[in-house]
């Protein structure tokens, strides 16, 4: 039994209620989202790749379905789907690299669904998704594969540690655009320094909403923002009490 089960249920219930309220609001009112530059750049990168008949390299890092990064893997796969949908009008398949074998099936299915949606399933190849063992071996393998296919850009989403530095360095050497995120602090710091555009912390989870999401996805971003402000107010009040 997990400790604080009551608190867990309370958080789930409050989040669900906030998401439903958010969905109601985004359906009825025009909500202006705070701009996240990476989500403005991503569709442009996809369009450029299609026009120049080049490939895009997506990487999910060590995001693992079945472990603590399951949701990072699911959301990253959703963002990849939204972009792969745009890329699926071209014969140039995107490359997806990852280091967790269970996520391999998720990534292959994500690409397959994007090509199915565009009715170009004949162009889809499961070998467009490549697995490498975790750690520096993954980073070096993924970076060299990305360079070999002459990828137009690298989009790194999910869980990356210091190995992100190798992917970033390779992107720079080969004049490739780099958009990066990591839910680990080490990877996040490196992403901030190396990437052309960086996604910070929870911005990854807003991805589906920013890339043409459903009302519930947009509502969940609203809920996230409201909950964040509630946490901030809670922290400030707790700090004031100690003075």
């Amino acid at each position: 039994m997990i400790p604080d089960a009551g608190l867990m249920w309370a958080i789930v219930a409050v989040t669900f209620a906030a998401m439903m309220a958010g969905r109601f609001l985004v359906r009825r009112f025009r909500i202006h989202w705070r701009p996240i530059p990476a989500y403005r750049t991503l569709p442009t990168l996809a369009a450029d790749a299609v026009e120049s008949a080049k490939r895009v390299h997506f990487s999910l890092g060590s995001s693992a379905v079945g472990e603590t990064s399951t949701l990072a893997a699911l959301v990253s796969a959703e963002v990849v789907y939204r972009l792969a949908e745009r890329l699926a009008i071209s014969r140039q398949l995107p490359l997806v690299t990852l280091s967790h074998p269970v996520t391999l099936a998720l990534a292959q299915d994500t690409l397959r669904r994007a090509y199915l949606y565009r009715r170009t399933l004949d162009w889809y190849r499961s070998s467009a998704v490549a697995w490498y063992p975790a750690g520096v071996a993954f980073a070096v393998g993924a970076a060299s594969l990305s360079a070999d296919i002459d990828a137009d850009s690298n989009v790194l989403l999910g869980r990356f540690g210091p190995e992100l530095a190798f992917l970033g360095e390779s992107a720079l050497r080969h004049n490739q655009a780099l958009i990066a995120h990591s839910d680990l602090l080490e990877g996040q710091a490196i992403a901030f320094a190396q990437a052309n555009e960086v996604l910070l912390g929870e911005e990854l989870y807003a991805g589906p909403a920013y890339l043409g999401g459903t009302a519930l996805e947009r509502g969940s971003v609203l809920a996230q923002d409201v909950l964040r402000w509630l946490v901030i107010v809670g922290i400030v009040l707790a700090a004031l009490q100690t003075i």
Partner: peptide, 18 residues
């Protein structure tokens, strides 16, 4: 950053659960 990631994870988790 970790609190933000936590909030995003909960929201994504509720989306998956529903």
């Amino acid at each position: 950053i970790l609190i933000g990631v936590g909030l995003g994870t909960v929201a994504a988790g509720v989306r998956a659960l529903t």
